[in-house]
Simulated scan of single mutants.
Amino acid sequence: MSHHAYALPVLAVATLTSTGCGTAVPDCAASGTTETARQIVSNTVEETFQQSRNQFEHLADSFDKTLEPEVDTIQYRLENIRTREFDEASQRYACTATLAATMNGREETQELRYTSQHNAEGEHYVEIQGLTEQRIGELLTVAFREGAE
């Protein structure tokens, strides 16, 4: 059995609704921040899975497991949200949270780093850091069920 470690950094970003001048940057635990971060993770995992489906199916088979067909039904939530720092000059929050991925009673967790700030247009801008292909693969293990077909 061969395992490949990937260290491709994935920088996933999204902007949320426009905000007016002088509006405070949503902090790490704000619903707009956490929902956007959760959606970025979901979209990134889904896109990576679709691009590398054969690799994930082979990996599942090597563990005598079957890959669930509906990876898009994995549920993601952020827990234990922490503010690592707030940069007053750039009005930017650096955040850490525990990302939990669940599917059919199986769960995988890992630490997630993200930022919350406004972009030049005044929109809420959330950026996920370090979501590598290897980390995405670890999240996708919740889609492995017992027994190869």
Rank of each mutant, 00 (worst) to 15 (best):
L139I: 05
M1W: 03
L8A: 15
A37E: 03
R145I: 10
T83G: 00
Q55K: 02
E108H: 12
G105D: 10
S62M: 08
Y125F: 12
R82Y: 09
V126P: 00
T48V: 13
T66C: 08
K65C: 14
R92H: 06
L59S: 00
G122H: 01
Q50H: 11
T96Y: 04
S18F: 07
R135F: 01
E149I: 06
E108P: 06
L112R: 01
L112V: 02
V13Y: 09
S62A: 12
G20Q: 14
E35M: 08
A89E: 10
P69R: 11
T23P: 09
A14I: 03
T36F: 02
F144W: 05
R113I: 04
Q50C: 07
L131E: 02
V13A: 07
A120C: 09
I136H: 01
E46A: 13
L16P: 03
L140E: 00
F63C: 09
E57P: 02
R113M: 11
T141E: 07
I136C: 00
Q50T: 12
E70N: 15
R82F: 12
H3V: 09
Q75D: 15
Y114G: 00
S18P: 10
G22Q: 10
L99S: 03
I40K: 01
N54W: 02
P9N: 09
L67S: 01
H124F: 12
T44M: 07
R84G: 14
T15A: 06
E85W: 11
A37T: 05
A7Y: 15
R135I: 00
E46I: 10
G137K: 01
A97D: 04
A30S: 12
E111N: 12
A120R: 12
A37W: 00
D72F: 04
M103H: 10
R113G: 05
G22F: 10
R82M: 14
Q134H: 12
S31V: 15
A29E: 06
Y93S: 00
F86P: 02
D61H: 13
N54K: 03
E88Q: 09
A100W: 04
